[in-house]
Design a protein around this nucleic acid. Structure first.
Length: 482
RNA sequence: GCCUCAUUAGCUCAGUCGGUUAGAGCGGCGGACUGUUAAUCCGUAGGUCCAAGGUUCAAGUCCUUGAUGAGGCGCCA
């Protein structure tokens, strides 16, 4: 007899059919009722012990966390609280779980403690829900792009390019660090390294994605990304997953439309397919916020917030307009900002972004046309515009409440001369990026793309507050456990 | 990297002004329980007070350094 998953059983009519379930014990009540979970859904199924044909010694082994199987009739539940239950004719123990040593307990545990036992935290209701939602979001992203004719492009994880300027990189080498080979000049002799040149883990697949878009038209990447920055925040990881679409012939507006459509689609997908899990996460968040003062609590329940994002267009405004709003804002006039907004040209601090998103507009915001000086070399240079004090680029950042920047993107500079000039000004070695510049030499065209931090999306949708709790085994400074 | 706060039982936390034998809830263990829903009831064990050094007649409590964790900031997705 093959096993049936609990998610399916809970949808089945209780006709007394013989079924087999396998899972982990969540509770054993009244020496009679086993709450069993197999990960297929948030809910448990109730297995009712039949004492007539069950060895009492076996009952002693039904402990919180034990892996067991149960065979029996799927019947209408005689108790309240569930529609169906299994009247067990046979119980099998697959793996005992000694409660004296098991780090998990059938009680509330803090997220900080569970982070220390990340290999076991999947078994909690919260993390079960988080990882089911994470999966649904990943699937929805692939579905969204596939349905629109995008190709999933696998860009390299190991890269020799050190010129992208997207952050500190992890070195990849097979050299013996105790005995580094040296050239006659005393430099490290990378000729003897695996790739015969210095290599790193990728900080972005964008440049490679652009190459693909210049022939395939619409591509996206979805892969691991590495930043060796010493970032200690609830929004940063050293290893995270990033989605980077790149579309030929798209301009900045198309780019914003694409990003907004995508976010709206995947959030809607989660709402539709993860209702039970989102309910658990919503209640978890309410519980967590009970210990906070009223003014720091979320204004909306989790699922209401998600629905709100789907139902309302994101606010679009330029950096220049944002500066005006910030300059005239109450917190700025009253000196409440740690970094006062003085003038045009400096980057926005996260307190400024939070003000725009959480206080002023109270919805997701897309900021565009940032000063060129604070943005990357590959972003398309705007024509001078009246009322705008300095040169800008066709950049866009999407800011989400509680998360900050969730998407960063731009229309790309497709004009060879302007791109080369910019690289020169920013001391980016052109020779090293000859392959990138070739796209501008041969059949160049306007195009645009963006990067979406996958974990930041999962953070937003699950209502979790620390990014280390939405990835299975987080990597951050000083931690590569598991 | 910077700033702030924390570290006491398996977990979450109390611990007053520096003063005798460091407490609670949950969890565990033993027992009861055949309609329970984070089951319930009775009983019970469990401590290197993060580490090292210092002040003091006396340190869980004060000081210094370090480790670890959390939050904020910076870097960014």
């Amino acid at each position: 007899m093959s096993r049936t998953k609990i998610a399916e059983l809970l949808r089945t009519e209780p006709t007394g059919t013989e079924v087999l379930v396998k899972g982990w014990v969540k509770a054993f009540r009244n020496n009679q009722f086993i709450a069993l979970n197999d990960g297929s859904c948030a809910a448990n199924i109730q297995v009712v012990v039949d004492h007539e044909n069950t060895d009492p010694a076996l009952l002693d082994r039904i402990k919180f966390g034990a892996a067991i199987g149960a065979r029996g009739a799927l019947i209408e539940s005689q108790g309240k609280g569930q529609k169906v239950e299994i009247k067990a004719s046979e119980i099998i123990i697959y793996g005992d779980c000694n409660p004296e040593e098991y780090p998990l307990q059938p009680k509330k545990q803090t997220l900080e403690y569970l982070r220390e036992i990340a290999h076991l935290r999947f078994r909690t209701n919260t993390f079960g829900a988080v990882f089911r939602v994470r999966h649904a979001l990943a699937y929805a992203i692939h579905k969204f792009f596939n349905d629109r004719g995008f190709y999933y492009l696998h860009t390299p994880v190991i890269t020799a390019s050190d010129a992208e300027g997207a952050g500190e990189m992890f070195r990849v080498t097979t050299l013996d660090l105790d005995k580094l080979p040296r050239t006659e000049g005393g430099e490290i002799d990378f000729d003897q390294d695996f790739f015969r040149r210095p290599t790193n883990l990728t900080v972005s697949g964008q440049l490679e994605a652009e190459l693909g878009a210049m022939a395939l038209g619409e591509v996206y990447t979805f892969g691991p990304t590495f930043r060796a920055e010493n970032s200690n925040t609830t929004r940063h990881l050293a290893e995270f997953w990033m989605i980077e679409p790149e579309v030929a012939f798209n301009d900045l507006n198309d780019n914003m439309d694409l990003a907004e459509d995508m976010l709206r689609y995947v959030i809607g997908y989660a709402l539709e397919h993860c209702a039970d899990d989102l309910k658990i996460l919503e209640e978890r968040l309410i519980e967590e916020e009970k210990s906070k003062p009223q003014d720091q609590r979320s204004e909306m329940a989790l699922t209401d917030k998600l629905r709100f994002v789907i139902d309302n267009r994101f606010e679009r405004l330029t950096y220049t307009e944002a500066i005006d709003i910030l300059k005239n804002s109450n917190p700025n006039k009253k000196g409440k900002f740690q970094f006062p907004v003085e003038g045009w040209g400096t980057d926005l601090q996260s307190e400024h972004e939070r003000y725009l998103v959480e206080k002023h507009f109270k919805k997701p915001v897309i900021l565009t046309n940032y000063p060129a000086a604070i943005k990357a070399f590959y972003m398309r240079q705007d024509e001078p515009k009246e009322g705008v004090p300095g040169p800008t680029v066709s950049a866009m950042d999407i800011l989400f409440p509680g998360i900050g920047e969730i998407v960063g993107g731009s229309q790309r500079e497709e004009r060879l001369e302007r791109l080369v000039q910019r690289m020169h000004d920013m001391h980016i070695p052109e020779a090293e990026l000859y392959w990138y510049l070739d796209t501008r030499r041969f059949g160049s065209c306007p195009h645009a793309g963006f990067g979406l931090g996958f974990e930041r999306l999962v953070l937003f949708v699950t209502g979790m507050t620390n990014i280390r709790d939405v990835i299975a085994f987080p990597r951050y400074p000083g931690n590569a456990e598991f």
